[in-house]
Simulated scan of single mutants.
Amino acid sequence: MAVLAWLLIPLLTAIGAGLWGSWAGRNRKAAGDGSELAGYARFREAMEKSHSGT
């Protein structure tokens, strides 16, 4: 019975690694990119204004 327990440890570890890998590689929605890009555009405009005066 102890041998079976030692064989189950790597099996369960492999299953857990497979589940984690599929979760980590999932497709994520890029819904938040629009606001970040708009903020970056505002930042660039502000930097251009501050450098155009000097």
Rank of each mutant, 00 (worst) to 15 (best):
I15E: 00
A30S: 03
A31N: 11
F43E: 08
A30I: 09
L37A: 13
W20C: 06
E48G: 01
R26K: 07
D33L: 05
K49L: 08
W20D: 03
G18S: 06
A24I: 11
S22M: 13
R28Q: 11
G16F: 05
G18R: 02
G16Q: 03
R44N: 12
F43H: 06
S35L: 13
G16I: 04
R28L: 15
A41F: 08
W23K: 08
S35R: 08
A24M: 11
F43W: 06
G32V: 05
R42N: 15
M47L: 14
R44D: 12
R42P: 01
A46F: 01
A41S: 09
R28T: 15
G21A: 15
E48Q: 07
E48N: 05
A31S: 13
G39W: 05
K49P: 00
F43M: 08
I15D: 01
A38I: 09
D33Y: 02
F43K: 12
G39D: 12
R42V: 14
A41R: 12
E45P: 01
G21D: 07
G39I: 05
Y40L: 12
E48L: 08
E36Q: 15
A30L: 11
L37Y: 02
A46H: 01
G18N: 03
G25E: 07
W23C: 03
A14C: 11
S22Y: 08
R44W: 05
A17H: 03
E48T: 06
G16K: 02
A38R: 08
G18V: 05
G25H: 04
G34T: 14
N27Y: 01
E48F: 02
G39S: 13
M47Q: 11
F43T: 09
K29Y: 01
F43N: 05
N27L: 10
Y40Q: 10
A38V: 12
A46S: 10
M47T: 07
A24Q: 11
Y40W: 08
E45Q: 13
I15Q: 00
D33T: 06
A31D: 15
G34Y: 04
G25N: 14
G21V: 09
W20Q: 03
E45F: 09
E36G: 00
K49G: 01
G25P: 00
R26I: 09
A17Y: 06
S35P: 02
G34H: 04
G25V: 06
F43D: 08
M47D: 04
A41L: 14
A14W: 06
K49H: 04
R28A: 14
G34L: 13
A30C: 00
A41N: 09
G34R: 05
G39M: 07
K49I: 12
A46N: 02
G39Y: 04
G21W: 10
A24P: 00
A24S: 14
A41C: 06
E36T: 14
S35G: 09
A14M: 11
K29T: 14
L37D: 02
N27P: 09
G25W: 03
I15H: 00
E45V: 10
